[in-house]
Amino acid sequence: MKENRKSGMTFIVKMITNIMIGFMIVFGGYIVLFGHITPGGGFPGGVMIALAYILVTLAYGRNIVERKVSGITASVVDDLGALTFWFIGIIGLCVGGEFLYNFLGKGKPFHIFSAGTIILNNIAITLKVGMSLYAIFLALAILGRVVTDKNERKDEQ
């Protein structure tokens, strides 16, 4: 990240981003994995992980974050999340005779490996929601480019 020191926002924003990014992703993962025990679930956790990526995009500029996770990768992961959800349903159909049947064991309440397929479904929804919102943000960043081009042209003159 050293070569593009000029792109993105100021140094303060970049340092705060470096500190916050880990906390955001860890808290998003916590919300997803404990979604069947405490309030939360796949949707808020996914949006929080997407917000972590969006924060990096805003702070460091679009080119650097696209080197880590490009828009194509994001949309592929997004499709994989939807397909995973559907596939869990198909497995339930094969095992239990009903679509989206809860084929794993119930487990003890208040343990992380309880409630059967809910945790898998939560992870699938996280991939779906998080990566699709991130990809939409990357796509919408094109709209800001017209204004940026205009500003750069002013700088050259």
Binding site: H36, G41, A82, G116, I118, N121, I125
Partner: peptide, 23 residues
């Protein structure tokens, strides 16, 4: 279901069809 969060047990077990539709 075995989930202590009833909201999640509704949206991902009892009414998982709806969640698939939302996705």
């Amino acid at each position: 279901v075995g989930a202590t969060n009833f909201v999640t047990s509704v949206i991902l077990d009892f009414r998982a069809y709806d969640t698939l539709g939302e996705a």
